[in-house]
Amino acid sequence: MIFSSTFIVFKKQRYNKYSFATIFFLSLLLNANAQTGEQVIQKIKMKLEKINDYQAEGTMKTNVAFIKAPVANVKIFYKKPDKLLILNETGISFIPKGSVNINVNNVFVHMQSFDIIDGGTDSEGLRVLKLLPKDDTADIVLSTLYIDEKNMVVKRSKTTTKENGTYELEMSYGKYLEYGLPDKIIFSFNTKDYKLPKGITLDYDDGSEKNGDTLKNKKGTVEIDYKNYVINKGVDNKIFDR
C-alpha cells in the first residue's frame, strides 16, 4: 500500500516535471514567435507603405440623429503621406470633423510621435496596442488599435482627442486585403447639439419635432462602402485644394 502510494507520487512528480518542461519549451518557442507592439506596427506600416496613392468610388451613408440625408455616391482620394479627400458628386455632404482619420495610414505616418503600449489580446483575438502621444500638447490623447495579426491589418481603432471627442473606426476587409485597404468602414463620432431658433426657421409644426431631446448628444456614424480602388496610378495634388 505504502509502495503503491509512493509509486503514484513518483509518477505524478515525473509527469509534472515533463509538463513543466513542455510548457517551458513551448513558451520559449512562443515568445520567440510573439511580436512586440513595435514589430506589429512596423509590419503593418510596411504593408501600407506599398500604397503611394489611391482613388476609390463608393457610397456614403451619414447617420446622425438630427440629419436626414440621401445615400451619396462619393469618390475618395488619398495621397501619401496624409492627404485625404471625400468628394460627393453633388458636393453637399455632411462630413464630420476628423474624417481624415478614416484613413488608417494616417496613424502610421505619425507613429514616431507615439509611445506604444501593448494591451495583449481582446476577446476576439485581436492584438490591442495603445498609442500615447509623446507631446503633451498633441490633440490626440489616446489611440487604441485592434489588430488582426494573421492578416496584419487594423480592424478597429478608437481615438480620443482633446477638441473633438472620441472617434471610432471599424473596418471590414475583402478584395484589397493585401494592400490593407478596407471594403467597408464605419466611422463613429460625437455630435454636438443642433438647434436653430424657431424665429429664424419659422418652422411648420407638423408634430414631428416634439421629441427633440432624443436627438441631443448622440453619436453619429458615417458608413462608406468602397466599390473599387485604383491604387498607385497617381492622384493630382490639385484635387486636395478644394
Binding site: F66, A69, T90, I92, L196
Partner: peptide, 16 residues
C-alpha cells in the same frame, strides 16, 4: 443641386 432645409432641431437633405 440638392436642397438642404434647416429646421429648428433637424436638417433635411433632398436630392436634386
Amino acid at each position: 443641386n440638392d436642397l438642404v432645409i434647416f429646421r429648428s432641431i433637424s436638417i433635411h437633405q433632398m436630392s436634386r
